[in-house]
Design a protein around this nucleic acid. Structure first.
Lengths: 104, 104
DNA sequence: CGGAATCCAAGAAGATACTG
DNA sequence: CAGTATCTTCTTGGATTCCG
């Protein structure tokens, strides 16, 4: 039987609103909170902050803060996060295939 | 269905409580609602019913009903569902590796 | 037995104001 | 600019009941 932790990553991370979009933007080099909020349509700063915190908690992204004025913070995918994103792409591809088969 | 994006499968299916466990049981040959409810700890009949409906809606499982007395209904993975489950296993494996790396 | 309907509790997310 | 706190609203899930 399966590991309860898979369920957890899906429930707490990937299954949350904006998460996939968020990860994709980080992958594309959009690393700062301000930019991320502008990039992901409809996501408020509060929710963004919660999501980022959780992604760090699950080891999917890593946080780096630079004590400058104004303060700068950057988020990047961990190696685990990068591989996770590859898997998400597989689901993407799978859906594309399923759609093709269905629609001709 | 309207334009099933990756985000949607994660949000509406995989990210929901019990979903991964449910899919794994179906994969293992537990196909009838009554058995599934007993198999997945804590899941009520209502939630089970909602989940199954959604899985059918997204083409992940297929429903077959037999007009017997008492009525019998069975749910099975579609080919899309089977491949989806393989991908879930990849996440499982990925997490296992990540844990190993971390704990030595 | 399968499943839909109802009512209620818990959690997720939106809007806004505020701190370092 | 990044992040937290509060309040409200919406969505999910739990408990129960009734129908085919």
């Amino acid at each position: 039987m399966s590991d309860p932790e898979v369920t957890e990553v899906f429930e707490k991370c990937l299954g949350c609103r904006y998460m996939v979009a968020l990860l994709r933007h980080i992958e594309d080099g959009v690393n700062r909170p301000g930019q991320l909020q502008r990039a992901v349509d409809g996501m408020t700063a509060k929710v963004l902050s919660e999501r980022l915190k959780r992604l760090v908690e699950y080891g999917i992204v890593e946080r780096a803060s630079y004590p400058e004025i104004p303060p700068r913070v950057e988020y990047d995918l961990s190696s685990f996060g990068r591989r996770l994103l590859e898997i998400i792409d597989e689901v993407d591809e799978l859906q594309r295939q399923a759609r093709m088969t269905k629609n001709g």
